[in-house]
């Protein structure tokens, strides 16, 4: 009898743990990621996980990854940013133009970041002040920022100077020179963003603002400022990511980041971020970003026609959302005491 009761208690405990995990929105993405890595490893005859290929994946990952971190946080706050792909190009182009005029790297960097912050502020201010959907404001900004990039480049991307601090951003480091410095930036910023969301009161405000705006307002949270801050963070991360790519490529192309705004939204959604705010985690977005890089790379290695890439992203986006809502429904129907 006692043993039976003990068993029941254990069972109850396991059930509760299972329920908690099933409610984690990033779970579906994580399972998918592991599955795909195994699949690609098999299809590519073991090439997928070798050092050379990992070096390739981890070299590009921070660029989309940093953008996704910002987009995820902004989506949790209940807003969208479609202009990140353009800011991704505009920020490094601003730097390149300034450096071509003789400005030192550091000041060009500060100016570029300030410009990205300003764009984020404008996005947020217009959205909040005039109560328009951020879909519209940032769609407009997508065109504006892209146009500015091309205009200030004068049609020809300026040459980058030779004395760039590549040691800080792009050189290979780590065991077996497996990743670039940009990866360290990505990890540091990812951890900081994740801690901000889970541990700080500001993270609490972001979740409340996106989760149920009337309640956040009623509890005295400065929701307008919270949203504007999230827009600025999103923009500045996209700009920083763009600079990383330009330093890696060695040339400020005005077309970089095109279409990435939608990939970033897809990554956030695959990682379990809710489109209408309140739900999501930075780690989910990061997993989504890794998934996208893994698919891009894995398809090539598996010698699948690379035009299937967008198909795969589209399929995964829908699949992840369906899987998540199914998991959540299952978890909800699991009876554990509240």
């Amino acid at each position: 009898m006692g043993a039976n009761l003990d068993f029941m208690r254990k069972f109850d405990y396991m059930k509760r743990a299972l329920k908690v995990y099933m409610e984690k929105p990033e779970l579906a993405a994580l399972v998918l990621l592991v599955g795909l890595i195994i699949l690609f490893q098999y299809l590519s005859d073991g090439v997928f996980l070798n050092a050379n290929n990992l070096r390739g994946i981890l070299g590009i990952l921070p660029e989309i990854g940093l953008m996704v971190i910002g987009v995820t946080i902004l989506m949790i706050a209940g807003e969208f940013d479609l202009s990140v792909g353009s800011v991704f190009a505009l920020m490094p182009m601003t730097m390149a133009v300034l450096m071509a005029d003789g400005t030192p790297f550091f000041f060009a960097f500060v100016a570029g970041m300030a410009f990205a912050l300003l764009i984020g502020f404008v996005n947020g201010y217009l959205t909040v002040k005039f109560a328009i959907p951020s879909f519209i404001t940032t769609l407009g900004m997508l065109f504006i920022a892209r146009s500015l990039t091309i205009v200030i480049s004068g049609g020809f991307p300026p040459l980058l100077p030779n004395d760039l601090p590549n040691w800080l951003f792009t050189v290979f480091v780590g065991p077996g020179h497996l990743f670039r410095m940009s990866f360290i930036w990505f990890v540091l910023i990812g951890v900081a963003a994740s801690l901000m969301m889970s541990r700080t009161n500001f993270g609490n405000w972001i979740k409340a603002t996106g989760g149920f705006l009337p309640a956040a307002d009623a509890m005295g949270i400065p929701t307008a400022r919270v949203k504007i801050a999230a827009f600025m963070l999103c923009s500045v991360l996209a700009g920083f990511a763009g600079m990383l790519q330009v330093l890696r490529l060695g040339s400020p192309l005005p077309s970089i980041g095109e279409g990435w705004e939608l990939q970033a939204v897809a990554a956030a959604v695959i990682g379990g971020t809710a489109l209408n705010g309140g739900v999501g985690a930075v780690i989910g977005g990061v997993i989504g970003a890794i998934l996208i890089r893994v698919i891009d790379n894995g398809l090539v290695l598996s010698q699948v026609d690379s035009n299937w890439f967008k198909f795969a992203i589209g399929f995964l986006t829908i699949f992840a959302v369906v899987a998540n809502s199914w998991l959540r429904k299952r978890a909800k129907s699991m009876k554990v005491e509240t």
Partner: peptide, 20 residues
């Protein structure tokens, strides 16, 4: 409030202290 001054997607502990 009638329509609840709680955020449904957040835990009880986090809701208790929103803004404070």
């Amino acid at each position: 409030y009638q329509y609840n001054s709680m955020v449904p997607t957040m835990s009880i502990a986090r809701n208790m202290f929103i803004g404070r």
